[in-house]
């Protein structure tokens, strides 16, 4: 099967990747060749087989509890944030400017 330029543009949009024209062209070529290789999986007879998944461990899921965080860890978490005001984090606006 063959992958088109439009396919790559759609994937880049879904994956939140800004690609240049050259990068789109390269991706088209590379994905075609890789998908050509992995295409052999379609020929494997898998009727009646379950997809592989690890059995849940006997301890089950971790309890959903708030755990303590010491001051050093907290400060390191905050310091990695690209933009902050004291202990508050600056994030880009989720909504565009309201219509006036």
């Amino acid at each position: 099967m063959s992958i088109s330029r439009e396919d790559i543009e759609r994937l880049a949009d879904l994956a939140r990747l800004k690609l240049s024209d050259d990068e789109i062209r390269d991706a088209e070529r590379d994905l075609d060749s890789i998908l050509g290789y992995v295409g052999r999986l379609q020929k494997v007879q898998t009727a009646g087989l379950e997809p592989f998944g690890l059995a849940p461990t006997e301890t089950g899921w971790r309890a959903d509890e708030v755990s303590d965080c010491d001051d050093l860890t907290r400060e390191l978490i905050l310091s990695n944030f690209p933009s902050r005001k004291g202990a508050l984090l600056n994030v880009p606006a989720v909504f565009e400017a309201p219509k006036g």
Partner: peptide, 10 residues
């Protein structure tokens, strides 16, 4: 993805 996970079982 699903086919790959089945072949992984094999």
């Amino acid at each position: 993805y699903l086919q790959a996970k089945k072949v992984q079982s094999l």
